[in-house]
Design a protein around this nucleic acid. Structure first.
Lengths: 161, 161
DNA sequence: CTTCAAGTTGAAGCAAGGTTGAAGTCAATC
DNA sequence: GATTGACTTCAACCTTGCTTCAACTTGAAG
């Protein structure tokens, strides 16, 4: 097949090549309503050029740590089928920035807590901020100052509903 | 039952209360060989006090982003059943520190890339470092400098291989 | 027309880290 | 001795974000 002529519609393999997403991912994205595709008479997918931008947005959002659901929400906030303005993008990227800043702060706090622990062997439930973010202990003596770890960072494991 | 007497063995519910882990998690940890428990004649779990420290270690390691497998590896590095020395702990926490520092650097780079994008609307596959870490594009014109995002940070969502 | 890479589908699988439920047991109290 | 609450096991299920498979069809080149 190949990138033959200056068609305005792209085959899935061209989108794969140009976006870096796997074909299976593209199909999956279509199935969950993230990335639209039209079809040929025979049922093959044809993508508009605009999906490349959409995919770039998706990848960026994934890098920032958003789930596909969250991405869907953000995408739906961009007025359907008018090219996003700088104001749109600016609003969104400011939110992402805040999110990243939070994550950074949390990790930094964790690392600094760790620093203050090195060599102390204090890894005790009651006293150590690194093992005891948010003071999950309740009774058992007055808790020392606990490291507050925002959920964003704690979110690394799926958490189980 | 309750924390009746100064037994040296703890029931599962006491460990739940004092560690903050769910009982189901404790059972799971035992099943994967992370946290040992003895049994009463009737088959109920009894925990030694030391497991509280072990659980604290596990929580701290989870916070740092280790998987249970990695945690098992680190725990096995601590000589079985001698109380870890400060040197042991220091060695480990230095590793964790490095890991956190990497994560922080990656997030910071991502945020700065975002900063340089705000308002530019440039979210294009070829040019935008935020959407194009590691330059996944191959051909299609000379790629601009791409943000290198270590896997560590990308790991926030479960990832599915 | 033939050929064959490229495309299609739906269901199932994987990875991690648990949770939930059913069905039954233990232990301490009324 | 009966009730109650804490505990047990085991298998099945959950979530996210895809990938893989098998079996078939399209479509463009020769």
């Amino acid at each position: 097949m190949g990138p033959v002529d200056a068609h305005q519609l792209l085959t899935i393999s061209e989108v794969v090549r140009r976006s870096g997403f796997a074909a299976s991912a593209l199909r999956y994205y279509e199935s969950v309503g993230l990335v639209p595709a039209t079809r040929t008479g025979g049922g093959q997918r044809r993508y508009e050029r605009a999906v490349l931008r959409r995919l770039a947005f998706i990848r960026a959002a994934r890098n920032v740590g958003l789930t596909l659901d969250e991405i869907r929400a953000e995408l739906s906030e961009l007025p359907r089928e008018r090219t996003p303005t700088k104001a749109d993008w600016s609003r969104i990227s400011r939110r992402w920035r805040g999110r990243l800043t939070e994550q950074i702060a949390a990790l930094t706090a964790l690392r600094d807590g760790l620093d203050s622990c090195i060599g102390c062997g204090c890894l005790s439930l009651r006293q150590c901020g690194v093992s005891n973010p948010r003071d999950a202990v309740a009774a058992e003596g007055g808790g020392a100052g606990a490291l507050h770890l925002p959920a964003l960072v704690r979110r690394q494991p799926p958490l189980g509903r």
